[in-house]
């Protein structure tokens, strides 16, 4: 039997499929092979898992791995908690809330490099505005980006500053989809404001939470430009993350090692995001 031709032909998919396959899938698959090689400008030589062993032997590479997790978890947690609180505040009929939403959202759209450079200047240990302002109220401000124990967290702060607007608008959209009847019913039952927040808002806004957590975790694990603009991974290697290690090894001509870093980053994202997604999908809201 000859079928009539579908009005939705598969060749519509073809241009996208070709570009995605050649420039995304092929390099991703090839990365597994190249991560097992000593690869530079001139030659490729198979060396087994030597790159991975080096990765888990060199203290500064291990630190990069840990920093990646710290960076992703702290930025994601801060954006989730603050985003929800700000969204509740900015939907409570506050005076000027439209303006506040707009102002908070704008940094999301600004160049990360520009934000990074600006805050590097604002965080200057002696002359930066932040420490000058702290000194005015009698606090001796720390070396935000020069103290090796603090540098990574200073970048985290700026990342949260830049991304909180997105988390907030996602939560505002989530809050808007909650039917007011739930609140009325809870209020009739005598629920306090705290109970309303934890028993009604938090469970019912879950789809937004899933979006915020997933987006900010993936973004945080892959984060590169802000760290690169602010610290270049320094002082020393104290604020290096996987993405900056990948770039440094690439610049140094260690392509195999750089690609192994890529595969490790891929694995890390998969190990964190997949179980999380399954857990989010299984745990249904019960009312």
């Amino acid at each position: 039997m000859s079928r009539t031709k579908s009005p939705y032909p598969y060749w519509f998919i073809l241009p996208a499929a070709v570009i995605f396959t050649v420039l995304f899938l092929v390099p991703t698959l090839a990365s597994f092979w190249f991560s097992l090689t000593r690869w530079d400008l001139f030659s490729v030589e198979f060396i087994g898992i030597e790159n991975y062993r080096q990765f888990f032997r060199e203290p500064f590479l291990i630190q990069g791995l840990f920093n990646t997790v710290i960076y992703a978890v702290t930025t994601s947690a801060a954006k989730t908690v603050l985003g929800l609180l700000l969204a509740v505040l900015l939907t409570s009929g506050l005076w000027g809330q439209g303006f506040l939403r707009t102002v908070m959202f704008f940094p999301v759209l600004v160049s990360t490099i520009g934000v990074g450079i600006t805050f590097t200047v604002l965080m200057h240990p002696t002359r930066g505005i932040i420490n000058v302002a702290l000194a005015a109220i009698g606090i001796h401000g720390p070396g935000w980006l020069t103290d090796p124990t603090l540098a990574l967290y200073s970048v985290v702060l700026v990342d949260v500053w830049k991304g909180i607007g997105l988390a907030t608008v996602i939560y505002i959209a989530g809050l808007a989809s909650i039917s007011p009847e739930y609140y009325e019913a809870a209020r009739i039952d005598g629920a306090t404001r705290t109970q309303l927040f934890f028993r009604v808002t938090v469970p019912l806004v879950k789809p937004a939470t899933v979006t915020v957590v997933t987006l900010s975790l993936i973004g945080g694990l892959r984060s590169f430009d802000l760290i690169w603009a602010m610290t270049r991974g320094g002082p020393g290697f104290s604020s290096d993350v996987l993405a900056s290690v990948i770039y440094k090894q690439y610049q140094a001509g260690f392509y195999g090692l750089s690609t192994a870093g890529n595969v490790i980053l891929f694995a890390l994202i998969a190990v964190i995001i997949l179980p999380l997604t399954l857990w989010f999908n299984r745990k249904e809201v019960e009312l």
């Binding site: 995605f20 092929v26 390099p27 770039y247 890529n262």
Partner: peptide
Amino acid sequence: RWNTLIFACVMIGLMVPPAVVPTIWVL
């Protein structure tokens, strides 16, 4: 049945970090 494959590709595209040096190699 192609849809499953396309969806898998969409998820890969959203999640997987691009493999930088191999991409340069392809380019």
